[in-house]
Nucleic acid binder design. Structure first.
Length: 736
DNA sequence: ATAGGGTTAG
């Protein structure tokens, strides 16, 4: 096999190469150390190549140095400090070297250094040329420095360089992205040549302002469109949620045989993801496979996201599991995918996996994982994230993360920690006020929620509809009829906020619980939207408390029209019949339930221990420590009995609560979780449990006693609210 | 040899 001849043997040695002159390129391009640069993927490698350059004397040539500096300054694998090190050692850098360094800084996260170096370059007597200015405009754009940009534009005109196509386009791009669309348009129209690139630069300005129709007119006017023009338009439509137009444009592009590239496919898959476009998404997937692009990390991420958002979580998961290289986006995609379809346990598992692989989470990770912690009551995990953020994210700008943290603490039962985060915030976003108010409401601290609302008003912040949901639910949980009415009418009259379903829901719940059925009915009658199942359910619940048979039947019928399989409604209406002694009707409902084969949502309670969430179903024996748990259950029963607790077995026959027919009361899921908590934690530790259904009356009174007997604070979240059990009492004052 | 437009997760 013939080896390629070295440029420095025989023929090459005929050339005399002076140290400071540029040798013929043809020779150097063939040199092994030269071709190594194009395959260089990290700085270690670069330093070896640098050594080779020195060995062959290339470090004395501006050509060789330009190549080295170019890699260090421009490559994503480079290192601008190393570039500067080489650059500073050069006695008289050429314009090319200056341009390379300036370009490198323009691409970096410190684009102001590009401008600094430009000033230095000129002050040392070098002349900027057509290669210098595009980097300067890019820097101005990144810095949003309109004034400096205009000054640099002035320099270009003075030097007569404005007709260079690269400069011309970078000026349009700068003005377009900096909010000076008029200037961009002017430069564009004054010039004699307009190609796809300059068109697209201008289009970008319209797109970033959301002016898609103006952008489209320009796009349609491009003489010869290239793939980037298509991408700009497609991603523009996708960005503002005009998915149909984004996707039909993509179909057009496909028909015209323009080959999509990575950017096109990423934008299209994201549009599919956000518009449930599974069919097209699958076609794109198979195209990606056919063209061997399936190992492209960005495309793989986009595919996982698309499948997850289109409901094919299992396809998404198997793609994710099969990915050889996972980056932070991959993990976030996957965690978000599970959260999106309410698979919170899976989301937490993926996050734990990510921790084990030592992948650093970022703000998007937190925004995806914190709601899963909140849902599952995974307080330890939530705390870990909070500590992590305090330790590692000093420059966290994303206020939503703080809001999510407050929400997580509140929903995990740690309202004190929620308050600490909230009051520690320097700037409080409206959402942070909102989650804090709802959090206090959830915990039954109605006065706290109402006080906080007053504070918000005092600070001159305008509340929104979400604020009022929290406020009204506080009134409802606290049974504050007068205040509820007041705030409801103030919302409409003073703040011009149209009540939505949740607002009506709170009011009807409030009025119903207080037995004010006439007022509840007239509110129902004047609603401008159809009441939903939740509203009828709270009315039905109120009817049960007050034994209102007639309205209860009506509410139940309304629920069955909307949702014939609503198990809870059958139970409630049956309880109303039982209370009125209408045993035939009780039996009739029970038969209906059986005949319809209605499956209730099984009651499930979870408790977190050392960042692991343990879930229990009624009479569950699947837990590895089941034996110990049941031993503890017996102990609890024994001590409850000693304390005089009488299980309400006589009522079980007719008072069908939500865990009706699920067997022995003392094996309800919350009892198992509490028993597990008691044997797994040190005496005195607060137990936090999360139940998916409303807590039953029996367990409620039992838990009150347990808190006293075992001297434990027990914080229980049920479907509606929190119960803080302490010293034999519950914070809900038996009102839930 | 160094220079222009579009790019993903919430």
């Amino acid at each position: 096999m013939a080896l390629p001849s070295s440029p420095f043997t025989s023929k090459a040695s005929a050339f005399h190469i002076p140290a400071e002159s540029n040798p013929p390129c043809s020779l150097l391009q063939k040199h092994p150390s030269q071709s190594l640069l194009s395959g260089c993927k990290n700085m270690e490698n670069l330093k070896q190549i640098h050594a080779q350059f020195i060995k062959f004397g290339l470090h004395n040539t501006h050509f060789g140095l330009s190549k080295l500096v170019g890699f260090c300054a421009l490559s994503p694998y480079g290192d601008s400090n190393y570039a500067l090190l080489i650059f500073d050692a050069i006695e008289n850098p050429t314009e090319i070297l200056w341009n390379t360094i300036i370009h490198g800084y323009a691409l970096s996260s410190n684009p102001e250094l590009a401008l600094e170096f430009y000033v230095k370059m000129v002050s040392l007597g070098n002349y900027p040329n057509s290669y210098t200015f595009p980097s300067l405009f890019k820097s101005c754009k990144k810095l949003m420095a309109a004034q400096i940009g205009k000054q640099v534009h002035g320099c270009v005109l003075k030097l007569g360089l404005d007709s260079y196509v690269h400069i011309h386009t970078s000026i349009i791009n700068m003005y377009a992205q900096i909010g000076e669309l008029g200037h961009a348009r002017q430069v564009f129209e004054k010039s004699s040549f307009r190609d796809a690139v300059s068109f697209t630069a201008l289009i970008g300005g319209y797109v970033s302002r959301g002016c898609l129709d103006e952008a489209r007119v320009l796009f349609d006017g491009i003489p010869v469109r290239d793939v980037v023009s298509w991408n700009a338009m497609i991603s523009g439509y996708a960005e503002v949620g005009r998915f149909g137009e984004a996707l039909s444009l993509f179909e057009n592009m496909w028909k015209l045989n323009v080959t999509p590239n990575e950017s096109t496919l990423v934008s299209v898959l994201s549009a599919c993801a956000r518009s449930a476009g599974l069919q097209l998404g699958k076609r794109v997937d198979s195209w990606i496979n056919r063209n061997g692009l399936d190992s492209n990390p960005r495309l793989a991420n986009a595919l996982v996201d698309m499948y997850a958002k289109c409901g094919e979580i299992d396809t998404a998961r198997s793609l994710f599991d099969g990915m050889e290289v996972k980056n932070i986006v991959s993990w976030n995609v996957m965690i978000g995918g599970h959260t999106h379809v309410s698979e919170y346990k899976e989301a937490l598992a993926v996050f734990r996996h990510m921790q084990l692989e030592r992948v650093e989470p970022n703000d998007v990770t937190f925004l995806n994982i914190l709601p899963a912690c909140a849902q599952m009551g995974a307080l330890d995990m939530g705390r870990w994230i909070h500590v992590y953020i305090n330790k590692n994210c000093h420059h966290l700008q994303n206020s939503s993360v703080w809001t999510s943290l407050i929400d997580m603490y509140a929903k995990c039962g740690s309202i004190e920690s929620a308050k600490q985060v909230f009051f520690g915030l320097e700037t409080k976003s409206l959402s942070s006020w909102n989650v804090m108010i709802s959090g206090l409401a959830m915990h039954g601290n109605a006065h706290g929620a109402i006080d906080l609302f007053s504070k918000l008003i005092e600070e001159g912040i305008e509340p929104d509809d979400v604020t009022f949901v929290g406020l009204l639910s506080a009134c409802s949980h606290g049974g504050m009829v007068e205040l509820g009415r007041l705030h409801f009418s103030s919302m409409v009259q003073d703040y011009k906020i149209q009540p939505k379903l949740p607002h009506y829901g709170c009011m009807i719940d409030l009025l119903g619980r207080a037995g004010l059925f006439d007022e509840a009915k007239s509110l129902l009658a004047c609603m401008d939207i159809e009441p939903d199942g939740a509203i009828w359910s709270s009315l039905l619940g109120a009817c049960r408390i007050h034994g209102n048979l007639e309205l209860g039947e009506y509410a139940a019928c309304s629920i069955f029209k909307l949702d014939p399989n609503n198990h809870g409604a059958y139970v409630l209406v049956s309880n109303i019949y039982a209370g009125a002694g209408r045993w035939n009707d009780v039996a009739r409902i029970r038969t209906m339930l059986n005949d319809n084969g209605l499956k209730k949502v099984p009651g499930c309670t979870s408790i977190e221990l050392d960042s692991v969430v343990h879930e229990f179903l009624v009479s569950d024996r699947t837990h590895p420590q089941s034996e110990d748990i049941y031993r503890m259950l017996d102990e609890i029963d024994r001590r409850l009995e000693m304390a005089g607790h009488v299980p309400n077995t006589s009522e079980v026959h007719y008072d069908m609560d939500e865990e009706w027919k699920e067997g022995i009361l003392s094996q309800h899921s919350e009892r198992l979780a509490i028993a597990f908590g008691l044997i797994s934690t040190k005496p005195g530790t607060t137990l936090r449990i999360v139940k998916n259904l409303r807590v039953c009356g029996n367990c409620h009174s039992a838990t009150k006693l347990i808190s006293k007997i075992f001297n434990r604070e027990i914080i229980a979240r049920d479907r509606n609210r929190f119960h803080h059990f302490k010293d034999g009492c519950c914070s809900c004052m038996d009102y839930w």
